[in-house]
Amino acid sequence: MNPAVSNLVISLGAMQLAHIPSQTVARKIPFDDPQVLTYVRIAYAVTQAITLAVYFYTAYKIRSKNDQTVLKYVEPANPMSPNSGGLMTTTYRDYDLSEVSKLLKGVYTGIGMMAFLHLYMKYTQPLFVQALMGLKNLYEAKPVAIHLLGQKAEGDLKRPFKTAPSLFGGAGNPATDKAAIDEAERKVGGVKEE
């Protein structure tokens, strides 16, 4: 399932209760009870701590494997950034570390947003949903699947990872075919290696 759609389904599923149309699950939780609020805060903090620990351990495993297999692909141009795209040459190690770095930035951004929403704006319901989303994102992390769960890097896990289309479209997926790589090498004036 598309990650953007599954995020929406989990959010709506956590927030909606089918047999009470005007009520939400999060509204049924008595957040005004200090003990319940403490438990939700603990659940959120534990989820984020587990997620960060798994991502750091994944980065450690990537560094210890030190896979220097060369990876070439053509990154699609981003319409919002005219200088993006082009030929990318890296190693599996560096590519996987950059993907883990993106995952960590996502966690840090989420924690920052939750700190603002919960501590400053006094919203408590997003803590409940974000605790669930943290576990879902951890389950869908491709570097975790390869390096910790031992899945083979093929299909959806083949590098470079294909990005699932967002709800609003996207720049596309990296091209890995020989013709696209040769064309990109000619554009940058590089020497084609056989």
Rank of each mutant, 00 (worst) to 15 (best):
residue 9 V to A: 15
residue 41 R to W: 08
residue 72 K to P: 04
residue 1 M to S: 12
residue 63 R to C: 11
residue 156 D to R: 08
residue 88 M to Q: 15
residue 73 Y to N: 06
residue 51 T to Q: 08
residue 42 I to V: 14
residue 32 D to C: 09
residue 21 P to C: 11
residue 30 P to M: 13
residue 35 Q to D: 13
residue 129 V to F: 01
residue 135 L to A: 11
residue 98 S to H: 05
residue 164 A to F: 13
residue 36 V to F: 10
residue 146 I to H: 02
residue 44 Y to D: 09
residue 146 I to D: 04
residue 154 E to P: 00
residue 128 F to W: 10
residue 104 L to G: 02
residue 131 A to Y: 00
residue 61 K to H: 01
residue 19 H to Q: 13
residue 93 R to C: 09
residue 41 R to H: 07
residue 154 E to C: 02
residue 168 F to M: 12
residue 53 A to I: 01
residue 33 D to I: 11
residue 134 G to M: 03
residue 118 H to F: 05
residue 58 T to C: 11
residue 62 I to L: 07
residue 53 A to N: 03
residue 34 P to Y: 13
residue 48 Q to A: 14
residue 50 I to V: 15
residue 22 S to W: 13
residue 186 R to F: 13
residue 148 L to P: 08
residue 56 F to V: 11
residue 165 P to C: 06
residue 51 T to W: 01
residue 132 L to D: 04
residue 31 F to G: 06
residue 149 L to F: 03
residue 8 L to I: 10
residue 68 Q to T: 13
residue 49 A to W: 01
residue 101 S to M: 11
residue 88 M to P: 01
residue 147 H to N: 09
residue 15 M to F: 11
residue 5 V to H: 11
residue 36 V to P: 02
residue 33 D to A: 09
residue 82 P to I: 05
residue 128 F to A: 06
residue 162 K to W: 05
residue 104 L to D: 02
residue 37 L to T: 06
residue 151 Q to G: 00
residue 55 Y to I: 01
residue 104 L to R: 06
residue 37 L to N: 10
residue 134 G to L: 01
residue 96 D to L: 09
residue 104 L to M: 10
residue 65 K to E: 12
residue 47 T to A: 15
residue 157 L to T: 00
residue 125 Q to N: 00
residue 71 L to G: 06
residue 114 M to Y: 02
residue 25 V to C: 13
residue 140 E to H: 04
residue 51 T to N: 07
residue 6 S to R: 12
residue 30 P to D: 15
residue 1 M to D: 05
residue 163 T to G: 07
residue 20 I to D: 12
residue 143 P to A: 07
residue 37 L to Q: 08
residue 167 L to P: 03
residue 71 L to S: 06
residue 139 Y to E: 08
residue 192 K to G: 12
residue 18 A to S: 15
residue 89 T to Y: 03
residue 5 V to S: 10
residue 81 S to V: 07
residue 175 A to Q: 14
residue 8 L to D: 12
residue 31 F to W: 14
residue 63 R to F: 01
residue 98 S to A: 10
residue 127 L to V: 00
residue 152 K to A: 06
residue 61 K to F: 01
residue 46 V to T: 12
residue 103 L to T: 05
residue 36 V to W: 11
residue 35 Q to G: 04
residue 167 L to G: 10
residue 27 R to V: 01
residue 182 D to Y: 11
residue 173 N to P: 07
residue 87 L to N: 06
residue 147 H to C: 04
residue 158 K to E: 10
residue 95 Y to P: 03
residue 22 S to L: 15
residue 4 A to K: 09
residue 93 R to V: 01
residue 179 A to T: 15
residue 119 L to T: 01
residue 84 S to M: 05
residue 87 L to Q: 03
residue 53 A to S: 12
residue 190 G to V: 10
residue 127 L to Q: 02
residue 121 M to S: 00
residue 97 L to N: 04
residue 96 D to P: 00
residue 128 F to E: 07
residue 132 L to T: 03
residue 159 R to G: 00
residue 21 P to E: 13
residue 97 L to H: 04
residue 76 P to D: 06
residue 23 Q to M: 13
residue 130 Q to H: 02
residue 92 Y to V: 07
residue 141 A to F: 01
residue 99 E to K: 06
residue 181 I to L: 12
residue 9 V to E: 09
residue 24 T to K: 13
residue 1 M to P: 04
residue 9 V to I: 14
residue 7 N to M: 14
residue 158 K to A: 14
residue 144 V to E: 03
residue 59 A to S: 11
residue 121 M to V: 06
residue 60 Y to H: 08
residue 14 A to R: 09
residue 147 H to D: 04
residue 131 A to N: 01
residue 154 E to H: 10
residue 14 A to C: 15
residue 130 Q to V: 04
